[in-house]
Design a protein around this nucleic acid. Structure first.
Lengths: 336, 336
DNA sequence: ATGAAAGCGCTAACAC
DNA sequence: GTGTTAGCGCTTTCAT
């Protein structure tokens, strides 16, 4: 693996290392001809600067980390797509880390970033995360962090989300409008920002429309398909709701499964609406009414915010919430 | 951002930099007590070694790159999951690059890896890639490459795939068994290994079962949903097939859409089977018969192969194909 | 058992 | 306009 580095270029061109370095970075005090010679040879030999050397020297890695709870999930997949698009455009590299909703993993992954491996972090926290010391520590060390989707308000930084409260309210109201009298909520961890907001939106609508507000209409789902189906089934049997609002796609699919098991017809016996970014929601049986988030744009926005502050030092991340609107798309699962 | 490095540890402990370094790496010629003191302080101060410094010094980055054509795709999503699992287990970091099926992007991304940024590469090539010079160049430079899914046979290395030919043959035969007399194939780029094999499997079955083998029963889809639907629609109108074998999930969904437009009933008017890793294929309307690949395991295997050779130098990647079996899952879309 | 010193490849003062 | 030099933080001979 004969490696071509600046030194070799300098030797071949009878120039100093410094001159070559400057020529490659298009510095003002190098003559045009020299620059051309250098660039020509660099191209010819397929020279690529060693990123570790320059990262070490400049304390910048042109790399960002993305920490997400899971990846087999349309939302995160789209968000990554947005993030990667921006990163590629601006010449950044992206490291992916998956916590699998495991707090301990999140902590140990964060530790790996204490040392300049990356210039910034995009994170959507795990559902089991309640203590944010690991992230505070990173921020204190000067690492810019942008939260997306599952944010944490106690951080002074940018947070990119959707209008979870409003959308949940609307989703619940939609079920009411379609004739539901008893609406259940399949909730995601209440310690999560989105879990909390989606719950609140649901509860407010329940209150406003004078629906039964029994605690047992609320199923706090876990991260285990089997168990979740069990819990949902129990709730169905006990409460016999005529409407279900699922906080995430997975729970909606679990409901479909449970309904099938119990011989319940959607939407006749029970109507279902869910947060979901499934591209083929319309091909489901029945097609699923969804609250769809602009996940790609969210990823793009979060990445753009982060990279902008990385590029110009004098634009530190301020404490702001960027809120995208989701859209409620009515399909058969909530038909009258 | 007061950074804690080896030098600082050494100062605080009244030891030399070298001793601290060795102590941290648990070297044999450091006394137990010294080691303990060093480790204790390192933990206390949350010391993390600077990865750029050690990468530069050791010519190893403990990082691998994953290049994939797209990410909004259940197959790749699962594969990444597998890759990430193995990487995390072995203390490797994973950089994600998406080519969006663009050859030029693939080339320029590959160039970024010429310089030691990563220790190895996992790749599934873009559908527009026909020239592999960029990858050969990397391999010549000594970078281990493992292919998965969309492989390239001309490389002397490990390739992890599924039994595409056999599965395609079986899928087509399945349609025949379900009564189809005229089967269309929605093909993915023939320059792709998988495109080629899936086509061959289809063609062999068509021949074996004496089905019409018109070229116009084969739709070579592009990478544009709109166009693909147009092409598929034309084919449907012209050929009126009673069976469709889709090489990838996206084309199956396009068929669902076209059938809906044309008022064709699946499976009565036309039966559909497809390669697909959609976790909720059974909730589609109608539920979709699929050839499902063990994508997670494929990712795991590819990563394991790569990391094994990275860990022990004397195990270079040999020219072998690791072939996983896919499973044909019959559902309503191919019912009699 | 510990330390001194060289150097990985690059950048950025600072000279000339 | 070009070259010299001193590190970035770490690993690794080689001395002691």
């Amino acid at each position: 693996m004969e490696t071509v580095n600046i030194k070799k270029l300098a030797q071949l061109l009878n120039l100093s290392i410094a001159t070559v370095s400057k020529a490659l970075r298009d510095s003002y005090d190098i003559s045009k001809e020299t620059k051309e010679k250098v660039v020509a040879l660099a191209n010819e030999l397929n020279y690529q600067p060693n990123p570790h050397a320059s990262s070490l020297r400049k304390h910048k890695s042109k790399t960002i980390a993305v920490i997400i709870p899971e990846i087999a999930n349309n939302y995160f997949t789209l968000a990554i797509n947005g993030i990667e698009t921006v990163a590629q455009e601006k010449g950044y590299h992206v490291l992916i880390y998956i916590t699998h909703e495991d707090f301990k993993k999140e902590v140990s992954l964060a530790k790996e970033l204490y040392n300049g491996r990356v210039d910034g972090l995009l994170i959507s926290v795990s559902s089991t995360t309640t203590d944010y010391a690991h992230l505070h520590h990173l921020q204190q060390k000067g690492l810019p962090i942008v939260f997306f989707d599952r944010v944490c308000d106690e951080f002074e930084t940018a947070k990119v989300t959707t209008d979870d409260y409003e959308s949940s309210y609307l989703a619940t109201r939609h079920l009411v409008e379609q004739g539901c009298k008893k609406i259940a909520h399949l909730a995601i961890s209440g310690s999560l920002s989105i879990g909390n907001k989606r719950m609140k939106g649901y509860q407010q609508a329940v209150a406003d429309f004078h629906l039964p507000a029994s605690q047992s209409l609320i199923v706090e789902c876990m991260n285990d398909d089997e168990k979740d189906r069990e819990l949902i089934k129990e709730m169905f049997l006990k409460e016999k709701p005529d409407g279900v609002f699922a906080a995430v796609e997975r729970y909606a699919m679990a409901s479909y499964d449970v309904c099938r098991q119990l011989g319940l017809q959607i939407p006749n016996d029970v109507k279902v609406i869910s947060f979901s970014n499934l591209p083929i929601a319309s091909f489901l049986n029945p097609s699923l009414s969804t609250i769809t988030q602009p996940a790609f744009d969210i990823g793009k926005e979060a990445a753009t915010r982060l990279l902008n502050t990385l590029e110009k030092k004098n634009a530190p991340l301020t404490n702001e919430s960027i809120i995208f609107r989701s859209s409620l798309i009515q399909r058969t699962s909530t038909s009258k």
